[in-house]
Nucleic acid binder design. Structure first.
Lengths: 162, 162
DNA sequence: GAGAGACTACTCGGATACAGTCTGTCCGAGTAAATCCGG
DNA sequence: CCGGATTTACTCGGACAGACTGTATCCGAGTAGTCTCTC
């Protein structure tokens, strides 16, 4: 059970978009070039973000993506779920129904206890992701990255933002 | 990102094995029949448990599996990791290394902040699974299942336990 | 110089292909209990 | 009746195949700016 690499890409791209000045867009091409990723496939991840309503998009030249909401109102969970889907990581096939001792027509009272526990863990994971805002990430990145690299990256992006 | 169905199977099988009297074994065939699962494929899940040291096995007739430890000393995480592996659900490909502004030979100071956050969520998930013991599951099952079904199932298993 | 039309650069979506994993099946090797057979 | 050989029932591991998902590429349709051409 491993998350797709698109999740990683989407998170990094959102971090870049978070630094974009109000009203500017950044193209898939620029984002792909900045991260060294295949443009065509990266666009699938960005399309997922777009379909989830996390980013706005404009067509035509100087078109591209920008965040639909301020970074403080976007959580990691939003982004992860946009790419990976909202489905739970554990699916219950109710194999308890196959119990040979089970009386005919017996109806289960509720979700299988096994599933209940797995779903609680899944919820703990999501809760942790829900608690981290995109703005928290950019703050962490600002501390992590040397100031000059931070500045030159910002300028690199600005040059390409329409 | 969905866990394999083998995880579900392994959890249910462990719950059955937890009810087995001291020193008795239960065969793959019986476990597969009880849960309505393909015997050959279920054996893969049980082999994973065996390789992880969670269950003991004996060959020959009246052979099969039994828990290697008391149910109170087996956690959900043990079982999930035995089947699914211990690898983190988020892998960091360090795409920040491709930043075109990054100076040559620049060495990252530590793990990528994005990965750090994802790994914390992963750890929260595992922590939740670590907190649930197999004995907790059997207690929950005892409450969930009607007493007569519980009893007849136990007898069904005992008949086949060598 | 202004407006209409052509052009360009981009997003979006579908089609396609390939690889890896998940699911499932089959079979042979090895092992331990049960059975059989000879003394 | 006893001990050794055979049979049986099971685990274990590898080989294999099909379905599905993840990764990746390509191309056509649509759109918004830009450019060009004409008046």
């Amino acid at each position: 059970m491993i998350l797709k690499s698109q999740v990683e890409w989407a998170l990094h791209c959102c971090a870049i978009l978070a630094g974009l000045p109000e009203g500017r867009y950044l193209s898939t091409k620029a984002l792909a070039e900045f991260h060294g990723l295949p443009k065509e496939y990266l666009s699938k991840a960005l399309q997922s973000l777009s379909q989830a309503g996390l980013v706005d998009t404009t067509l035509g030249p100087s078109g591209g993506y920008r965040l639909a909401r301020p970074p403080a109102e976007l959580t990691f969970l939003d982004i992860v779920e946009a790419v990976e889907g909202k489905a739970r990581t554990f699916v219950c096939n109710n194999i308890r129904e196959n119990n040979p001792c089970r009386p005919q027509g017996y109806c289960e009272s509720g979700p299988c206890p096994v599933a209940r526990i797995m779903w609680e863990a899944d919820e703990a994971w999501r809760e942790k992701l829900r608690a981290v805002r995109l703005s928290d990430l950019t703050e962490a990145l600002a501390l992590d990255i040397p100031a000059d690299l931070w500045k030159s990256s910002f300028e690199w992006v600005l040059e390409r933002a329409g």
